[in-house]
């Protein structure tokens, strides 16, 4: 996770405003506030996460991402962040577009289901992938949409979304962009709408 944090810290401009969807205990927002002097707000569905954020003095909303971002005005944040959650929401395309309506830029990181080990487990083993990166059995996984890095790129092209920065990770480490759809376990990218 730290490599993702580092990547986000690297991208976010000092003094900007950040909305973190699925903020958990606000560790990211706290680090951003400390190192980038950002003004952040978190959204989470879990009471314990909300308590943790409030204790840290970070403002947080109880909210369900499946209800979308309808209450947020357009262009009200510099960055809207969604970390490891896109595959868990009911309507990922809509949420992505909503993030780009509310934020000038979106930072998304998502698991790449085409990672070679997943391919091996499904293609040769004939069973749904279950490994350190995907530690769930098929019957109790929060992941309801399975997509690959290439699928995501295609969606961006179709929806007129510019991918301005892209970082590939394997098991928490940044890796070079060589055959990323095969070697990356997750991808972190910065998005904006084409003008």
């Amino acid at each position: 996770m730290n490599a993702v944090f580092e990547q986000i810290l690297h991208v976010v401009e000092p003094g900007s405003t950040v909305l973190d969807l699925g903020c958990d205990d606000c560790a990211l927002l706290e680090q951003l506030a400390r190192e980038r002097n950002t003004l952040g707000r978190g959204v989470d569905i879990d009471d314990r996460s909300i308590q943790a954020c409030i204790r840290k003095g970070i403002s947080v909303f109880h909210g369900d991402l499946d209800e979308g971002l309808k209450d947020y005005p357009s262009r009200s944040y510099d960055y809207v962040i969604l970390s490891r959650t896109l595959q868990q929401v009911r309507d990922p395309k809509n949420l992505l577009l909503e993030m780009l309506r509310v934020g000038r830029q979106a930072i998304v990181n998502y698991p790449n289901f085409a990672f070679w080990l997943n391919r091996l487990q499904l293609g040769i083993g004939g069973r749904m992938p279950e490994n350190r990166e995907l530690p769930y059995s098929w019957y109790d996984t929060p992941n309801i949409h399975f997509f690959t890095h290439r699928d995501f790129q295609r969606l961006c092209r179709e929806e007129g979304i510019t991918v301005s920065q892209q970082v590939y990770l394997s098991r928490g480490r940044v890796i070079p962009g060589f055959l990323p759809n095969l070697f990356a376990t997750e991808v972190c990218c910065t998005l904006s709408l084409d003008v």
Partner: peptide, 21 residues
Amino acid sequence: SKEVVYALARAGKDVSFNEVV
């Protein structure tokens, strides 16, 4: 409550909100 909360958020205020079960 959400009406208040989102009005505060639109005004850029520091607001936390929780719907308690």
